[in-house]
Structure formats: structure tokens, C-alpha cells
Simulated scan of single mutants.
Amino acid sequence: MSPNAPSPRPKLPKRQVLIRLALAVIAAIIAFNIPHSLIPVFKESISEATPPPEIQNVLAGKRKIVIVGDSITEAGKYPGGYVWLLQRYLSALYPGKIEIVNAGISGNKATDMQARFQKDAIDHKPDLVMINVGVNDVWHAF
């Protein structure tokens, strides 16, 4: 290829280069911080774990908890997510006794959750229901 021939790859405007650089920096920061969220939650052995007094009575006799929400709840099932942490904590305190049902659906607003509440929450016959809503309602100008 001659030195005066146009490059097969078009030159990116400075703004696009800066955006790509910023995204790379953000990705690197996230990548370096992920291991911190995966550090074991419990410093004591599982056999020594006891629930704080303020929740001992709340969880007495509870066998199933349904968590209804949006993408934050749905993604909470992955390591480090709040649903995952809750399941891990309760499994340590009450091995094999409390089931968590994650009923999070990305993009849902309060009206969407209301429409599916019977099927996704009540039909599971839960002892407790957690409802996490509002992000999409605000985001989509409810």
C-alpha cells in the first residue's frame, strides 16, 4: 500500500476515542473491584453463625421467601448480588430450611409486578414477600 493511499480503517473522531478510553477505564475499575464482592461473607464458621436478635422472631417458622422486583432483583441471583447474599446468609443460619424464590424481571415497573403478583408471588405460597420496585418507574417517568 502506498503511503498516500487512504487507510482501510476510517480515523475516529477524538470524541469517540475519548468515549472508548473512558469505557475501558470503567471496565478496568469494575474488573479490579469484582473480587472484593466475592470475598467470603462470613468470618466465623457456619456452625457458629447466629441471627441477630432483631430478626430471630421474624424468621421463626418461615420456609419460603419470594423476592419480587426488576432487573436489580433478577441480577441479584448472581454471586455478590443481594438475593445471592441473602440466600447464603439464611442457608448458613438455617441449613436447608428457607427457600428463596427470585421473581425479578428486568424492565418491570410497579404496574408490571402488580399484573404478575399472583403468579410470581402468591402462587408460590410464601411465608414472606419482599418487593423491590421503583427504579424503572422513575427511569421511565411512571
Rank of each mutant, 00 (worst) to 15 (best):
G80A: 11
M113I: 12
E48W: 07
G61Y: 07
V66F: 00
L38N: 07
N4D: 15
E54F: 13
N4E: 13
K119P: 00
L128K: 01
I67N: 01
D127P: 03
F32I: 13
E74F: 09
M113G: 14
P79S: 08
L12A: 14
F32T: 14
V135Y: 15
G61C: 07
Q56F: 04
G104L: 08
I26E: 06
M113Y: 01
R63K: 15
S37N: 11
G76W: 07
N57P: 04
S47L: 10
K14E: 12
S106L: 03
S7G: 00
G134K: 07
S45W: 05
K97E: 15
E54H: 14
E74K: 10
W84V: 04
H140V: 04
T50D: 03
S7Q: 04
N102M: 06
P6G: 02
M1F: 12
E44I: 15
G76M: 08
A103K: 03
L23V: 06
K97H: 07
P53S: 10
D70Q: 06
D120L: 02
L59A: 05
R20F: 09
H36T: 13
S71M: 05
A27D: 11
K125W: 01
W139Q: 11
P40C: 01
K125A: 14
I30Y: 09
Y89M: 13
V133M: 12
L128A: 06
K64S: 07
D137I: 05
G107H: 10
R9I: 15
L93N: 07
S47C: 04
I30N: 05
F117Y: 12
E48F: 09
V83R: 03
A22W: 03
K119F: 07
I29V: 15
A121E: 00
L18H: 10
Q87M: 07
V133L: 12
N136G: 00
E44N: 14
P126Y: 04
D112R: 00
T111G: 03
K14W: 10
W84D: 14
V68M: 15
R15C: 03
K109L: 06
G107M: 11
T50E: 14
S71L: 09
F32M: 11
S71T: 10
D137S: 06
D70A: 14
S71Q: 08
V25S: 07
N108Q: 11
I100W: 02
I19T: 12
Q87V: 01
T73L: 05
I72R: 06
W139G: 06
M113L: 08
P3H: 06
I100Q: 02
A141R: 11
P79L: 05
K125G: 04
M113V: 07
F117K: 06
L128F: 04
E99K: 15
H124K: 14
L93A: 07
V83T: 15
Y82V: 04
K11Q: 13
M1E: 10
T50A: 12
N108H: 13
S2E: 11
V41E: 13
I72M: 12
E99N: 05
I30C: 10
A75I: 01
P79K: 12
K77W: 09
T50F: 00
T50V: 14
R63M: 01
P53Q: 08
L128R: 03
G76Q: 11
G134W: 06
D127L: 05
S91I: 05
L90H: 02
R20M: 12
Q16W: 10
P95C: 02
Y82K: 05
I39P: 00
S71H: 08
E48H: 13
